[in-house]
Design a protein around this nucleic acid. Structure first.
Lengths: 190, 190
DNA sequence: GGGAGCATGTAACGGGTTACATGATTGG
DNA sequence: CCAATCATGTAACCCGTTACATGCTCCC
């Protein structure tokens, strides 16, 4: 019995599901709408922002698997929202996923570099402009991540998500620096 | 008439299509199989590696749109392969895509950081091991990109794809360095 | 002879997106 | 009162993957 708990593999789920379950694992009861906000302010910086409708789908799936439970909160007369919380099974599965399931390969789809790669078609000056704009955007993203990291560090349970956001801050700073290098590298090319 | 050529937008296609057309834009006639090899040795380092079957699908679509043409090469008695080449329309579309179509947002799905973010569930030491392994893998990838970059620099037409691969080399080196930072940052945390 | 690589494709499926639909509450 | 935000969900669709099927050729 207690053996099974150690040897059972968590069910195969897309990473999205684990991400959503991960948000619930911070312990707060959340609506689908809330989950979306949280995802946009953390996940989005190193993973991606699932759409609202997808989040609802995932939450329903997690509940069906017994990893989450929901209850309806009656805020007002006519208005209500469904709050989801993680279950014991959910926590256990999350732990198994963390420890036992191999991490999928890191996915990078860098359309800026895709354009550079094919720059023998097209106007190089326009590419340079586009790169410069992307550089500034990356710096802004770095600052955003940093700001969210400060917020996350305040809560003991969020210490690792805080570090993840610090990582993101560095990532986007490095990204900007690499673009600077690239612009320099392209000087004189035609 | 010549006006239209300047104002027409290229058809809306998924980035995959442009990537495949981009491979053809280097001028060599290629089979679907060849395209896959090329993609694995360049695209994969900054974009992603489309599956073989997807490549065949894209090639057929590009031909239907008039951006590519194919002919059957009879290698041997019973064996043949279909070679694809870019057309004038294909080149023009590629140029328009480069110059006029806004670049899609950069997609990053970093499952290593996803695990870090949720590390309050699960074993931190196992995460550290996983990160160390990823670091080494990133360094290997950096070296691979660098090697391909050297090859690309030899051909005049590939100068930009060479620079893209140099960018990739830096990217994966920075990635490894960031993991080193991260491992250091996690020291003492539990 | 047999295995590795060359070569092309089909079918089923799934993950995820956009667009749409609906309605309540809050604050200026 | 009106816009923004909160809140939930359906339907259509598409991109892309895996698994499968098939058969050749080269070289050991």
């Amino acid at each position: 019995m207690s053996d099974r708990e150690h040897t059972d593999q968590p069910p195969e789920l897309p990473a999205t599901s684990w991400a959503v379950l991960g948000i619930l694992s911070f312990g707060t009861e959340l609506s689908g709408y809330d989950v979306k906000q949280w995802a946009d302010q953390s996940l989005a910086y190193f993973y991606w922002a699932p759409s609202q409708s997808q989040i609802y789908t995932e939450l329903r799936r997690l509940e069906q698997l017994g990893m989450a439970v929901s209850r309806v909160e009656q805020t007002h007369a006519a208005k209500s929202r469904r709050l989801y919380g993680i279950t014991e099974l959910g926590r256990r599965s999350m732990r198994q996923w963390s420890d036992e399931v191999a991490a999928e390969p890191v996915v990078l789809k860098h359309s800026q570099i895709l354009r550079l790669w094919a720059a023998h078609n097209g106007d190089l000056d326009r590419l340079r402009e586009s790169l410069a704009a992307y550089r500034d955007e990356a710096l802004r993203t770095a600052e955003e991540s940093g700001a969210h990291a400060v917020g996350a560090r305040r809560e003991e349970d969020w210490r690792f998500s805080g570090v993840a956001l610090e990582w993101a801050e560095r990532f986007y700073r490095d990204e900007a620096a690499r673009i600077d290098w690239l612009i320099e590298r392209l000087k004189g090319m035609r």
